[in-house]
Simulated scan of single mutants.
Amino acid sequence: MLRIEQLTKTFGRNTAVDRATLQVERPMMIGVIGRSGAGKSTLLRMLNRLEEASSGTIHFEGRQVSGLEGRAKRAWQADCAMIFQQFNLVPRMDVVSNVLHGTLNRRSTLASLFNLYPQADIYRAIDILERLGIAEHAPKRAEALSGGQQQRVAIARALMQDPKIILADEPIASLDPMNAQVVMQTLRRIHEEDGRMVIANLHTLDTARRYCDRVVGMRDGRIVFDGTPAQLTLQIAREIYGADASFSEEATSTEIAALERGTGRPVPA
């Protein structure tokens, strides 16, 4: 379904992603973990074509998407929706209009300029907001919502694209534990109910273990682990993060119970 071969991205003399190779045979929820600077965000941005690869290829459903240009590239970006840590909403615009921005890739320039949306799209946007539990906020400005609610609006915008893949770049890094759980549960439910592939960069091990079918570990731009959550042992986690024996998985917890005990301190992403 998705095949990444020897994908590399360099910035001058620095290599952000180093010959990453990954194959995904079916829709899964995949968590990508690693320290800050490991190459996680760059990998997702190359998949979405926000960053151009220095070398290597990306294939999806038998088609090479890493070389697409123009309209074909925009169509791929619609199929491969991106969710960002900082939401990337228009703060002073109402929630439903932010969600409708998910249709921009398939609308004319004139319609986009004057914010003209078919009634069917408006109804669909409200239905998606209802599904995510925030329909009552549709007429409000995005800036009036909490961080967790804004991230669900961003997820709704991604769903408006009707994508085959959802890429989430640190979707819970700026959220409190309660909202983080709501957002991760939402992404998991979308994967299970819609059969969509979800690939999320995550900054804590317990989140990857709890919500993902597969975990990919990156260190210094390279994929150094690819397996199930059960295979992600403490020793392997230490190797991914480049940590010594003092590294404790409990110290990376975002679970509310652990935080209430005063033991939860997120590892830097």
Rank of each mutant, 00 (worst) to 15 (best):
L2R: 11
I4K: 11
I4E: 05
Q6K: 15
K9R: 14
F11M: 02
G12E: 02
G12R: 02
A16D: 01
L22K: 06
L22F: 12
V24G: 01
E25G: 08
R26A: 12
M28F: 02
V32P: 00
G34H: 01
R35L: 01
A38V: 02
G39E: 01
G39W: 03
G39P: 04
K40E: 01
L44H: 14
M46Y: 03
E51R: 05
S55M: 08
H59V: 10
E61Y: 03
R63H: 12
Q64S: 09
E69K: 15
E69F: 10
A72E: 15
D79R: 15
D79L: 06
M82K: 07
M82E: 07
M82L: 13
P91Y: 02
R92D: 04
M93W: 06
M93N: 00
D94A: 07
D94W: 04
L100P: 05
T103R: 15
N105D: 13
T109F: 15
S112L: 04
L113K: 12
F114C: 11
N115Q: 15
L116D: 09
P118R: 12
Q119G: 02
A120E: 15
I122Q: 10
L132Q: 08
L132G: 05
E136V: 08
H137F: 14
K140N: 09
A142K: 07
L145Q: 02
G148E: 05
Q149D: 05
Q151G: 10
A158D: 09
K164G: 12
I166F: 07
D169T: 08
E170Q: 11
P171V: 04
D176W: 10
D176G: 13
M178D: 09
Q181L: 03
V182A: 07
M184L: 12
M184P: 01
L187A: 00
R189Y: 00
I190S: 02
H191C: 00
H191M: 00
E193Y: 02
G195I: 08
N201Y: 03
R214T: 01
V216R: 05
R219G: 00
R222G: 10
F225P: 09
D226E: 15
D226K: 15
Q231W: 03
T233M: 13
R238Y: 03
I240D: 08
D244I: 04
D244A: 07
S246K: 13
F247G: 06
F247I: 05
S248E: 14
T252P: 07
T254H: 04
R261K: 13
T263V: 14
